[in-house]
């Protein structure tokens, strides 16, 4: 009997030994720290469970930051998705030479990863007050961008910079879906007398819709968690929720450590919802485009 038991124990051990380090690592360095924060959000400073800490998220100062982050993420994701889709569609179906596709995809791979601090520097050097384009426009065309109210260090300026990685990520993800549109569908539509516009409106877009919306959700989460670009570009003049939380962690500026957990919890909820939408719609999209 004991021999049999030890055999089955060692069998179970052999079945699990490769996964255990991974699971243990994930538990200690990913799940527990996050759980710790989540639990903290439901406690007050004395450790008692309460919803008051979460309620403080709705005070104007934090609610405004959340709202700012949501708006920046929304507009950068919407514009990035729209422009990225249009560029990808133009390149695949717009009569452009086929050789532009491969370089575009390669470049998008680079641009999607060219985020953070260097990206902010690149835009400051280009559209800052003495930036490359600003100077050219002023000296060659007499256009004074900053005189016209343009400011890179602003709400729309930040979105304009975010578009760099948002648009390229969109191109990267949506390109295979657009290429996956079957030629038969188009030919069927045309033989039934559909115009190009009708084909897009009634066939292609409905098929692509789950991928479009799903990728939008992904882009939203992508920009919601970002901090380095905004920090390098605007300092703290745009008080995104990530920047608020960063300041809170570093210096406890809100005089209530548990409020930090509440902010973090709020962020997790928002990115989790966005990602859940992405995953669900992605699965639905794969049904069509195979």
């Amino acid at each position: 009997m004991p021999a049999m038991r030890s055999a089955s124990v060692s069998r179970i051990a052999a079945n699990w030994v490769g996964v255990i380090p991974f699971l243990a690592f994930a538990a200690v360095f990913l799940l527990l720290p996050t759980l710790n924060i989540v639990v903290g959000a439901f406690r007050d400073s004395s450790g008692a469970y309460t919803l008051d800490t979460l309620a403080k998220l709705f005070e104007p100062r934090l609610a405004n930051s959340f709202w700012l982050s949501i708006r920046v993420s929304f507009f950068s994701a919407a514009l990035g998705a729209l422009l990225g889709f249009l560029i990808a569609a133009a390149v695949v179906h717009g009569g452009l030479p086929a050789w532009v596709r491969a370089p575009l995809v390669t470049f998008s791979g680079v641009a999607a990863n060219f985020a953070g601090v260097p990206l902010a520097f690149a835009f400051i050097a280009t559209l800052g007050r003495i930036g490359f384009v600003t100077v050219i426009l002023k000296e060659w065309f007499g256009l004074n961008l900053y005189g016209m109210g343009f400011n890179l260090i602003s709400f729309w300026g930040l979105i304009f910079v975010y578009l760099y990685f948002q648009m390229s990520l969109m191109i990267l993800i949506i390109m295979p879906s657009i290429e996956g549109l079957k030629r038969e569908w188009r030919e069927a539509a045309e033989s039934l007398g559909a115009s190009g516009l009708q084909y897009w409106r009634m066939v292609a877009l409905p098929v692509l819709f789950p991928s479009l919306l799903g990728t939008f959700a992904l882009l939203f989460a992508n920009s919601f968690g970002a901090i380095a670009t905004a920090q390098a570009l605007t300092g703290s003049s745009q008080s995104l929720i990530t920047i608020q939380l960063f300041a809170q962690i570093r210096g406890d500026v809100l005089q209530d450590p548990n409020l930090g957990y509440a902010i973090a919890f709020g962020m997790i909820v928002i990115t989790a919802v966005a990602n859940a939408i992405y995953i669900v719609l992605r699965q639905r999209a794969e049904k069509w485009v195979k």
Binding site: A26, F29, L30, L31, L32, P33, T34, N36, I37, G40, A221, F224, G225, I227, T242, L245, F246, I249, G260, Y261, A264, M267, I268, T271, A272, N275
Partner: peptide, 16 residues
């Protein structure tokens, strides 16, 4: 999960 949980939240959890 690391794509879902913002980096700053994981780092915050570490500090705690």
């Amino acid at each position: 999960l690391p794509l879902v949980i913002p980096v700053i939240v994981i780092a915050f959890g570490y500090l705690r």
